[in-house]
Design a protein around this nucleic acid. Structure first.
Lengths: 104, 104
DNA sequence: TGGTTATTTGGTAAAATAGCCAAATAGTAC
DNA sequence: GTACTATTTGGCTATTTTACCAAATAACCA
């Protein structure tokens, strides 16, 4: 694996890494239904607001969510709805556990 | 987010976590073309064999690859080809960078 | 059996990640 | 302006992940 090839995989890995956390998956799921401000997400997640804010910053850095300041609040919404397709496939992988393969 | 809900997201996150590493994405990609033994993958990746073996163990633990011992070698192959669908979507996310959204 | 090859496992050090608190910033309202 | 609210950032510690080396295991061959 040479340097450019590695760089390309690192880029892909960065996107997946941003998704590889239960709280961030939950946030993505919620934002797929409707936009939310940080306080709302903090309430839903049940963690410190600074923690939630950092998770959002990770998702934003990966280009998965977009933020918009409205007054004192910052509203987040899903920028790439296709990440939801991941979930279906992840479910398939989980369901395929122990079997010969998945349904896709 | 109560305990069961969190558990469900943790499970999904575990699958994504197993994919969230450049070397493991590379391995998945190579295994999607044809099966390989550890020595072959080690050569392709360019890391210590023990490192590659551990990456394979992570992928196996997540149910993404299957291993089969043939003589002294252990051959790995992709168990859930649908993970390849991820890659297309990840590419879309990367391409959508800075734009209003992705193509899916 | 002993020697050689292929792979995994255990140990360890370095790096990355996650969570909370406290402080800083930005906006609103008075 | 001050006071108050919403959010982000910095600092710190605990946990997890990664990669290498060395040792253990398993299978082959002479």
């Amino acid at each position: 694996m040479n340097a450019d090839v590695r760089a390309r995989y690192e880029q892909r890995a960065a996107v997946l890494k941003s998704l590889a956390h239960a709280t961030r998956l939950f946030i993505i799921d919620e934002l797929s239904k409707e936009e939310h401000c940080v306080a709302e997400l903090t309430e839903m997640v049940g963690a410190d607001m600074s923690t939630v804010s950092k998770h959002l910053s990770v998702l934003k850095g990966a280009g998965l969510v977009r933020d918009e300041k409205r007054g004192a609040q910052v509203y987040y919404r899903l920028r790439v709805p296709c990440v939801l397709n991941f979930f279906g496939c992840v479910e398939d992988v989980i369901k395929a556990d122990g079997e010969g393969g998945c349904s896709c």
